[in-house]
Design a binder for these strands. Structure first.
Lengths: 229, 229
DNA sequence: TCAAACCAGATTGTCGACACTTTGAATGGA
DNA sequence: TCCATTCAAAGTGTCGACAATCTGGTTTGA
């Protein structure tokens, strides 16, 4: 179901790899509070491991921009600001636009059929009860995930699926962001897939960018009214 | 001069950070051959350090996609394929296009003046002797580097300057790629800066994307004629 | 009373050593 | 001669311990 969780084989042989996945999940889901310090002795003891593998995992988290580290002081979970959320949306607009273009050129017809089936399922879910917005939001990520996979560009896939999507999920988990535009989003998704099915890369990119831009502007509106930070 | 080297304070307090920078530079410049295995005991001894900090540095290199690591086997420097080079150009097209758009909206007038001065200098260099294509190529990176900085989007800056630009430089160093379109590139650079100076984000993005696309197509032509891989 | 120096405790950075896995060659049998 | 097995050497993964640094509170002096 959850396509994002896939990159973790969960039975990797080395402790450092496993702990990296655990910590990333804990940070993304907010089980380790944003901005909190991660003490090496305490964390190592809690996980029942030594500090060596833990430090290796921390270095990878640092490279993913999930923790900030200062020499001789320690590592803290990043704090989420509204500005950074907007930054991510802008990058996604550019990157996923390109992904949609490439997917239109290179995706297999079978893959396109799969996505259409996914959207059909989303349509049924939304028709049943609209309030399941959060669930739909995860479905939204599923959709984007598949488009990116369809691009076939390994490095593009890596940037989005290994780093940015985790960050986006972190924002969703922590701010409890609920989409109030599930219907509009589904409509836009369908237009994107139509363009891909027509092998119209230019249109697919245009539609994807417009879709993500709309999401961003929606978030910006919410942030402006919610709390004046 | 070399704006890329800047992110290395070079006197970071921890060994792991320093070694990370050293190894990244050595890999990018080809001093550690592509595809070669990096032995931990040997490398640690050569650098006069222990294996602990070295492993931390390797984990960061792994996260930067500069080395591939397999548990219980070891780490190898990535091997460069033509396909991956094209992948990077496609990502740069999307990302730097967005950067140019943002720079047009947010860059300071002083920063724009600086870039204009840089281009003026490039113009003089090219007028003197065109064969200094490689030098111009580094200048080309300088230009792109400044545009990205001008975007003000910290995460965008990080993706491009911390990861992609090092990879791009790695390709240039290893394949000894020489630009045969310095004059065209300069012209395109000037059009981009003009659009930014006019605060026309849409045009700036369009021009930047066209510029990078032209570079990519030029490389594709060279690769097609050079060696039929 | 306030500020600067100081000191103890804890934390990070680094190292050397041990256990487990892989690798490659040598050995033995068919 | 060729293939499977065995075994030793090297390398990776992990751990515990020591040195260097930071933190916060206490003491001391003006």
């Amino acid at each position: 179901m959850d396509a994002i969780a896939q990159p973790l084989p969960e039975e990797t042989s080395t402790i450092a790899d496993r702990v990296f996945g655990q910590l990333r999940l804990a940070i993304v889901e907010g089980k380790i509070p944003a901005g909190s310090k991660i003490s090496e002795p305490e964390t190592a003891a809690r996980l029942g491991i030594s500090r060596g593998p833990l430090r290796e995992a921390m270095r990878r988290l640092e490279a993913c921009n999930l923790v900030e580290r200062r020499p001789n002081i320690g590592a803290r979970v990043i704090t989420l600001s509204n500005e950074q959320l907007i930054e991510i949306y802008l990058i996604r607009e550019a990157l996923e636009g390109m992904a949609a273009r490439l997917a239109a050129e290179r995706m297999s017809t079978a893959g396109i059929k799969d996505i259409k089936a996914l959207l059909e399922q989303h349509r049924r879910e939304i028709a049943r009860d609209d309030w399941q917005a959060y669930f739909q939001k995860e479905g939204d990520m599923d959709f984007h995930y598949r488009i990116v996979q369809g691009s076939g560009n390994q490095r593009l896939i890596g940037i989005l699926c290994d780093d940015l999507y985790h960050l986006a999920r972190m924002y969703r988990c922590q701010f409890g962001m609920v989409s109030n535009r599930a219907r509009d989003a589904l409509k836009e998704h369908e237009l994107i897939v139509d363009a891909i099915a027509e092998r119209d890369g230019e249109l697919a990119e245009l539609m994807m960018r417009r879709h993500i831009r709309a999401s961003r502007q929606n978030v910006e509106r919410q942030l402006a009214t919610d709390t004046t930070t």
